[in-house]
Structures are given as C-alpha cells and as structure tokens.
Amino acid sequence: MEVLRTGSGFWSALVWAATALGSFLIIWLFSRAFESGYKKGTDQTDPFLSGNPPAPGQRVTASHIYWGFVEALKGYYQPLVRAHSGIVNDYLAWAVLVGAIIFALLGGLMR
C-alpha cells in the first residue's frame, strides 16, 4: 500500500482509520460493562450554567463561547479590531506600508 512520504516520516490515512476503528471497537466492547448513568428527562441532561438555574429559552450562543479567552487577551484584541476599521483608505495605507517595507528590504539589501 502506498503511503505519503513527508520528508521526515510517512502518513497513511487508511492505517490511521483502521487503527481508530479498532480502538473504538475495543472501547465499545469495554463500555458494555460500564454502568449506564444517562437518565433522560432529569437534571443531568440540562446545560450547566455556572450553577445558575437555566431561564426559559436561555442557551449558550457563539458570543458566550471563548468569552474568557477574548477578555484575557483584550490588550491584544482591541488594537487588532481597531486596525480592521472597514475604511478603504486604511486598507490602502497598509498596502503602501508593506510596499515601502518590501522596497526598502529588496532595494537596500541588494546593494
């Protein structure tokens, strides 16, 4: 069977898939001996919202996910978002800046 040579090693997706399938099979066989803890319609099937009782219609939306990550990196994100101003003049300014750097690097270092 052909494998992908990556320069340092190799990769075969088919071998990986067979291994993954075998592993799942073993886990499934073991899981038959596990205790069945899932009880439909009980509290355990409700989302856990930091211990608060869920309000009607309350759910976890995209804005909630990774809120802490973004909050912790506020110092990084605020200037980054500001740079994405949506103003085409700013877009051009970035292109001019990059152009100047490329000109300086190529023009300066070739001499």
Partner: peptide, 9 residues
Amino acid sequence: VIALALFVL
C-alpha cells in the same frame, strides 16, 4: 528589483 517589489505587493 522595483518590478519584483511591485509584483510581490
């Protein structure tokens, strides 16, 4: 070099 920089940009 100038042409290259313009192309790359």
